[in-house]
Nucleic acid binder design. Structure first.
Lengths: 202, 202
DNA sequence: TGTCACTAAGCAAGCGCTTAGTCACCCCTC
DNA sequence: GAGGGGTGACTAAGCGCTTGCTTAGTGACA
């Protein structure tokens, strides 16, 4: 039910993570402004004040979730690109990994993509930089495919935006009791991605 | 900056619409729970109490926006489908209209797609029915194309979901000072749609 | 004179966050 | 190994403020 667990060890760290996990569930279900600090603390089995022993504010909780999530996504995309020099294979790998992750971690992904406006200015800038890097990876990939003639696509930037949309919107509609597994989604979406850029397989 | 204006006439109706327009801007920018009734009334140049002269509650405002928006989208899709019996042409028309609308009316579209959880049970059920009809139109269209051999696409339902995602996610990222016009987006997205379903043009 | 859009003032409830204090536990000393 | 001083996770209570919404009343127009 979660994908958070770094730096474990002390009892305090465990509680810290428990509060973070509760915040993820609550923010995803009711949005940042729709969630109260009492909701989060209550779901973690603690009093409202305990939240402030481990975290500075409700907003900091959101930032932490957002930061971890974006770093994870960036790493995911870079790893997928690194596996093969061929743009078509890179695109398949990136689209599959991106889609599978957005299906599997749709709870976190929902917060990451739809609660950006609730971050304060400083945190917002830091997240914007991470998003810029993720977007850059996608644009570079599409441009490389166009440059070597693998892709047929008049506007690479717009194609990159469409590819991102396909994955990100999964966070909005995917949930566990659908017929599709994250792996099935990944396979289908890899094919959609290849088609969108008009790839000619060698 | 808005696309609301039916049933005008009396002074009261005009004020009612002014409040609705203010609610649209505020909900889109800060979310339903992040918006206060004072924000809405203030933006409409009125006191907080004036809101309740014209509307039952803040939630009813959201429902009204959502209902109008969904009805408009459903009509848009049906009109696009009605223009031509050929599935490929229908898909082009639907994808173009859907994308253009989500770019042009991204403010309203954002509320419609991302604030569903804030509706009360009764209103939520009514909106769910409208969404079901929109989804149905898309699925029927893809199935028709697969049936007559125009489309090559192993999972029509998943392809329909991807087509919807492409349009809906525009509401998240599109804004006025980008290089692309809604018309340019529409043209590119019509091509993406045709590619996603693997259409073989006759 | 009656109607109705509209406001000033305010209510009950709920918000994020703080304060003052309790309690379990750990290490050091004798 | 009993006693004591210190530490830090945790809570009950509540502060200052904001929320959605109501009420009593005003003033313009028919």
């Amino acid at each position: 039910m979660s994908d958070a667990s770094p730096a474990a060890g002390s009892r305090a760290d465990a509680t810290r993570e428990r509060l973070l996990a509760a915040a993820i569930e609550a923010f995803a279900a009711k949005g940042f402004h729709g969630t109260t600090t009492r909701d989060i603390a209550g779901a973690a089995g603690m009093s409202p004040a305990a939240l402030y022993v481990h975290h500075r504010s409700k907003e900091e909780l959101l930032f932490l979730i957002s930061q971890r999530g974006h770093e994870r996504t960036l790493e995911l995309v870079r790893t997928a690109r690194a596996a093969d020099p061929d743009p078509i294979e890179q695109l398949r790998a990136v689209a599959a990994a991106f889609a599978e992750h957005h299906a599997r971690a749709h709870t976190t992904a929902r917060i990451i993509n739809y609660e950006l406006a609730a971050l304060d200015d400083e945190h917002s800038a830091e997240i914007a930089e991470l998003r810029h890097q993720i977007d850059g990876e996608l644009r570079d990939l599409v441009r490389a495919g166009v440059a070597d003639g693998s892709f047929d696509c008049p506007d690479p930037r717009l194609a990159a935006a469409a590819l991102l949309s396909l994955g990100i919107d999964l966070a909005r509609w995917y949930h566990e009791d659908l017929v599709w597994t994250p792996e099935a989604i990944a396979a289908a979406y890899a094919e959609f991605a290849v088609r969108i850029v008009g790839a000619t397989s060698n």
